[in-house]
């Protein structure tokens, strides 16, 4: 049958169909998958897509939150409430040893801190639970080294990513065959952009952490940067601490995630703001600017 203009699927429908296909392939081909749940907007979208993929059955895998210990209190509150409401199984994993040693980004620098509290914790959690596939919410539009990332990203038995040794990926035929202790990271949102994620949140009325919405918050104002005041070791110079109407564009650890000045307190206003935005999303993340190609180095070590 020839398609007419009214038959056309929108970009949201096309992206949704692709992501659902990916979820179903993984759940059918792997023994023990898990979904990385970071509490952010991308995770919220992934969670909704997983619900849709398996409806009317429940989501057939647990969620894993790698808690660095420095997440915003509002994030943790949202996590516990929302996952309980949906009735999904949630595993929380922390690198307790490193936290007991007082690991924090000021003391160790962002790279070593991320290495211990994110990458190490993640690898430990995956190994401990024998997960053979892990869904992540990363998008190709986020950062240069992610632009070439596969949807099924192969990790060796040490959980590491070899950019030279990735499987070619054609059509939507995903190769999920792995050896003992090897695993696959799966990115169902690979082809979504930041704007797509917001469009979907709007269309589907998906709950998100209130930190994304603008309101007056206590911030350290340093040049263009707004640094949230949550942890005792983040302290400003006299006069730096102010009330600023702002919001977070992406959610990470409070000491390393900058806010932006904004009046956008609804999803349509956020979308409007993004469409007029002149800077890239991760410009406010401290960790990507550590050194050139830092994301690629983190990914090789096992970071998402």
């Amino acid at each position: 049958m020839t398609a007419t203009a009214t038959d056309r699927l929108t970009h949201m429908q096309l992206l949704e169909a692709e992501s659902i296909h990916i979820f179903r392939e993984v759940a059918s081909e792997f023994e023990n998958p898990v979904m990385l749940y970071s509490i952010g907007k991308d995770s919220s979208v992934m969670l909704r897509l997983a619900q849709k993929a398996f409806y009317p059955s429940p989501i057939p895998f647990p969620l894993l939150h790698v808690d660095t210990g420095y997440k915003f209190a509002e994030m943790l509150e949202f996590r516990d409430r929302y996952t309980a409401e949906l009735g999904v199984k949630l595993i929380v994993w922390r690198n307790e040893e490193a936290l007991a040693d007082g690991a924090n980004p000021i003391k160790l620098g962002t790279q070593r801190c991320c290495g211990l509290l994110k990458t190490q914790a993640l690898l430990d959690a995956l190994r401990d639970h024998h997960f053979d596939a892990a869904f992540g919410g990363a998008r190709r539009d986020e950062e240069k080294s992610r632009a070439k990332e596969r949807i099924f990203s192969f990790r060796d038995s040490a959980g590491q990513w070899d950019p030279k040794n990735q499987r070619p990926e054609l059509w939507n035929l995903f190769n999920g065959r792995i050896g003992p202790n090897e695993s696959i990271r799966v990115f169902p949102l690979s082809n979504w952009t930041e704007l797509d994620v917001w469009h979907y949140i709007h269309l589907e009325k998906i709950p998100i952490v209130p930190l994304y919405f603008a309101k007056p918050r206590r911030m350290l104002v340093r040049g263009d940067a707004l640094i949230p005041v949550e942890q005792p070791f983040v302290q400003g110079l006299p006069g730096e601490e102010q009330w600023v109407k702002c919001r977070l564009r992406s959610l990470g650890c409070s000491p390393c995630t900058g806010a932006i000045r904004s009046d956008a307190d609804t999803v349509p206003k956020i979308i409007d703001e993004l469409m007029g935005m002149r800077n890239s999303e991760r410009a406010n993340r401290v960790i990507d600017h550590d050194q050139d190609g830092s994301m690629e180095i983190k990914k090789r070590e096992g970071y998402f």
Partner: peptide, 18 residues
């Protein structure tokens, strides 16, 4: 006004294909 403008733009955005 911001909300109305935002919603108008949004409607056009959501109709696009890929």
């Amino acid at each position: 006004e911001a909300t109305a403008r935002a919603e108008e733009r949004l409607e056009a955005e959501l109709g696009k294909d890929l």
